[in-house]
Nucleic acid binder design. Structure first.
Lengths: 224, 224
DNA sequence: TGAATGGTTCGGCACAGGCCGAACTATGCT
DNA sequence: AGCATAGTTCGGCCTGTGCCGAACCATTCA
């Protein structure tokens, strides 16, 4: 007893429906204002404000003040990973929320996880890049090969090291229960997909919806 | 909003100190009785009983009735993985519990994670087995090579497939923030360590404490 | 069969904390 | 300056739930 870190504090933060909904909304990777998060969670601004300061103090989210707006985002890729893992458990046990919306299949196919691509397509991409030797390494220690780095550069993927996060990282997918690609490379690829117009994001969801030829173009470019 | 599975339900279950302490105790991998868990969590039997039924209904733990004793264990390796991930976050942000006990360094060195070895030594073992080609594969898809399977068999590791869990699996370590080995192989190796008398487990903790020559013998046997 | 022990159920208490209305601060716009 | 909008703080309400004492099953053992 009393072994290890204090798990209850953090789980308790996530364990309130209002806060959990806000965190889930932030899984989209976009920074959202307090007001947006409040309506997302179905609560009033005052209540949301209290929750947000608690989440911030707990180290789960970060706040950017810009003018009279406060933008919030997940503190960290690790937070996103824990949330995905929790979704995995929740999906396996107790059914998918009260009523499992029609959007669910789309979510499983391709969605945003923090700042990178998740869902079946994310897993396929990850496997494909490994099979072709673009990514090398094992376990959580994956990296771009030299050839892979050249290929990504040729495609125009931005790998600038402005953030401290690792270049490559694997992240567990709740729907597929397999790894997909996170880290700066994962982020760069997702950005690239939108920049190329292969896909778009229906407002207010985590869904990645491909345009008519977008999915084919994406798979061709990354050859998987 | 309302995307994905209901995360709050599960996080809320973990988020109570009493329940979290019980879950942490079950991370030792041993099945514990209701009474043991109650004293572990510092609460009375009646209270614990309520918590345990809720955890059971939530799918986080499983109950074995044996005579007048009820034995509880984690439902699943996935549950253990989520708990470890939460410990990782908790360790990074808000300090290590109120007072970080003297046992902490031992925990970081070698401890039990559900049914396999974690801590620095667990990570070293994992890396060593991969470097030597005993384990092959990438990401979460790892497997024993043919040579590796022979080597494990020669050492007397029990890999019988009585459980549905995969033979090899990687599990993220909260102290080292690296992967270590889980799955049936991980379990078999841990059992083997105790069977050989290389290490023992101080009562009521997750610590794996090596005997005088035990650690050297262990590292020699698995060559890392 | 009666006593001891491990667990659960029931009832009631008390506190924590989620929620909102109202008042207040800060920023931006005209 | 005056108004509108975004957020926060304050105070009070109220539900949820964690906790325990006491009573109640179930199993074992003498």
């Amino acid at each position: 007893m009393k072994d290890g870190p204090d798990i209850a504090r953090i789980a308790n933060l996530i364990g309130d429906p209002g806060r959990a909904n806000m965190l889930a909304a932030l899984m989209s990777g976009k920074a959202l204002t307090a007001g947006e998060l409040a309506s997302e969670a179905g609560i009033r601004g005052q209540t949301a404000s209290g929750h947000l300061t608690r989440l911030e103090e707990g180290g789960l989210i970060q706040r950017d003040r810009q003018g009279r707006h406060h933008y919030f985002r997940l503190a960290d890729g690790d937070v996103a990973q824990v949330l995905e893992a929790l979704m995995g458990l929740a999906a396996k046990n107790g059914q998918l929320r009260t009523r499992t919306g029609p959007r669910d299949p789309e979510l499983r196919h391709a969605r945003v996880c923090y700042n990178h691509l998740a869902g079946n397509l994310g897993v396929l991409l990850y496997d494909g890049l490994k099979a072709r030797g673009v990514l090398v390494g094992e376990g959580d220690d994956i990296a771009l090969s030299d050839a892979g780095r050249a290929e990504m550069a040729a495609l125009g993927i931005d790998l600038s090291a402005k953030s401290r996060s690792p270049e490559c990282k694997s992240c567990l997918d709740w729907s597929a229960r397999r790894s997909h690609l996170a880290g700066r490379l994962g982020r760069g690829i997702l950005d690239h997909m939108f920049a190329q117009g292969w896909a778009s994001r229906p407002e207010g969801t985590r869904i990645v919806r491909f345009t008519g030829l977008g999915e084919a173009a994406f798979r061709k470019a990354f050859n998987f």
